[in-house]
Design a protein around this nucleic acid. Structure first.
Lengths: 345, 345
DNA sequence: CTGAAAGCGCTAACAG
DNA sequence: CTGTTAGCGCTTTCAG
């Protein structure tokens, strides 16, 4: 009862071990008759191949590793703030792996640490995954992707374009920012503030460009005074909002590069007695908190779960077929309209 | 460069393969001299043992599996509501595993499904973990724990007492509810409503008892009219609160069995023009949302991350030493006081 | 289309 | 204290 191996199945079905292996892996060249006999034995015995043995014998490990930023993730956990990225990534990638008989292992390594390469190599050696999913900021780390590629590990890069190194699964941050801004313009806003994200992330720069795109194509000028720096933290959002609201001709709407900073803006506005959506607010990321604020924040939803699912699917495809690295995949974003945006009074 | 095995290390250090194995596993009976030589070779070559091979050869897999409720987890992910339990569990268990050279794999199985046993057995067969962490409601599933025990898999049960089957890591829900209620009584409240949780969970029943304990030891009577049923959903919280606030002699404070229902209470109160903390509110769980509501909710903090860490640690201990199942571990909870509770006017 | 034999990289058991 | 040998449960050759 405990520990049914391929040999037991082979005996029970009266076939060779290799035939069982063929059936389990859906390989060709097995008659339906034998297939049935094997499957019957498999079901009867409750046989499930051992992952470890599969890895030892064959060339696949049926394992994908997702690499996440250590500091960021742990800080979020520790502060009890939740971790939407991780949650959505698990959602998309784990379920996809499961559906294909793969497992996903989740690893944290510190971005920017000197021995990042060593750490990653250790993970590769220990786990020998069939593919690796990189999340920001690792996905933007060229050196890392190059190292992985050199070692022939298929790499999916979340949130960025692959540009020939691994493959990217991403959304168009620029067009998202443009759409968010256009939403505000459509409501009659002309002076729209922008709170930028940390320039460390590609997406931050693109969001800023999209914001400018929308203004320009609406015939509005891009006023640098309306662009405040931020780094995705609440504190930076507070500072940025204060700066924007102190302007002589202050904005009637603000687009923040993430939810945290938008919530900061909401906070500052209320402290100054400015109502929202009198001051309209749009944010990026659509994390759980934006539904709970009063009013709820209009927000750009990143398709994190879809990106992760796609990443996993493509990596599994590579590992199954041995095909070359897939090409980049662009996924659609969403604009969730809530109470924080309204027509300009 | 790619694929350094134990043999390479043995050659480089001029020792037998087994000696390397001994050093890697911290086994006794190796002179310091050889130890150093081996370690030098290990570092030089960047050797990291293959998990799969270790599992194949030896008796350990260096793998822990955490079993979570499928439906619940996926629903939370899907709705974008976040998943504090999962986050905190990962926080505690993953980091602990990492520190001991173990990995944690996270699996979702549907509680109450007919073939739960089959699913779990499949996971055991495929992964052969050194231990398994059960979260609610799986941790309360006696039949499941019995099956696991029969198969000699060490089992940690989160959130419940072990009572001889596996071992439990848990907090005292009853005393927590008592403390929360006492906090309200201390503020001068005498009519305190209680919104119960789904009776499916042991903790729900205990919380209710703790509530009653506190009232009784303060010399107050337990008025059944002040106890409203709930099932942990927002909707049930709305219904319960409406019922409580419609009472002729309505409560001046409410203790809700989780955050979601407390947020519902906040919502209903505000709709009825009742201010919080005029109506004082205490919740259970201290999930991220309670910090964002206005006012923030006073809440009982479950030590989920600590419980998970302890569970992992103890399982790893068993796997290393082969000791018997550890005994139950009680962990302290916290009471986070925020703006939703104040002295009775 | 099917099967037999040879490992994969490690550790357990046993010798020295 | 150290080394040798025999597997673990699979898949990959390579024969039939």
């Amino acid at each position: 009862m405990s520990k049914v191996t391929i040999r037991h199945v082979a005996e029970a079905a009266g076939v060779a071990v290799k035939t069982v292996s063929r059936v389990m892996n859906g390989e060709p060249n097995v008659t339906r008759d034998l297939q049935d006999r094997v499957m019957k034995a498999v079901d009867a015995l409750g046989y499930v191949p051992s992952m470890a043995a599969r890895r030892m014998g064959g060339s696949r490990s049926f394992l994908l590793v997702a690499l996440n930023d250590r500091l960021n993730t742990i800080n979020n956990w520790r502060s009890g703030r939740g971790n939407d990225w991780i949650d959505q990534m698990l959602h998309g990638a784990m379920l996809t792996c499961e559906a294909h008989g793969y497992r996903m292992l989740f690893e944290l390594v510190e971005a920017g640490s000197d021995d990042l390469d060593r750490k990653v190599v250790a993970i590769l050696s220990a786990l020998q995954p069939d593919g690796i999913i990189l999340t920001p900021p690792h996905s933007e780390n060229r050196a890392l992707v190059e190292m992985l590629t050199r070692r022939q590990v298929p790499v999916a890069r979340m949130g960025v374009r692959g540009e020939g190194l691994g493959f990217g699964v991403f959304m168009d941050d620029r067009r998202a920012a443009e759409e968010a801004t256009r939403h505000l313009i459509g409501l009659g806003h002309a002076r729209i503030g922008f709170i930028a994200g940390s320039p460390r992330f590609q997406a931050s720069r693109q969001r800023r460009e999209g914001y400018a795109d929308a203004l320009r194509s609406a015939g509005l000028t891009v006023d640098e005074a309306l662009i405040a720096p931020g780094d995705f933290t609440f504190e930076s959002g507070v500072a940025a909002t204060e700066r924007l609201l102190a302007l002589p001709d202050r904005p009637t709407a603000i687009l923040a590069s993430n939810d945290e900073m938008a919530l900061a803006a909401l906070h500052v506005a209320s402290r100054r007695g400015i109502g929202v959506p009198d001051l309209s607010l749009v944010s990026f990321d659509d994390t759980p908190g934006v539904r709970l604020s009063v009013p709820g924040l209009t927000s750009i939803r990143q398709p994190i779960s879809d990106m992760a699912a796609r990443a996993a699917e493509l990596l599994i495809g590579v590992s199954k077929t041995g095909d070359a690295t897939p090409s980049d995949h662009l996924l659609p974003f969403g604009l969730e309209i809530r109470g924080s945006t309204a027509a300009r009074q």
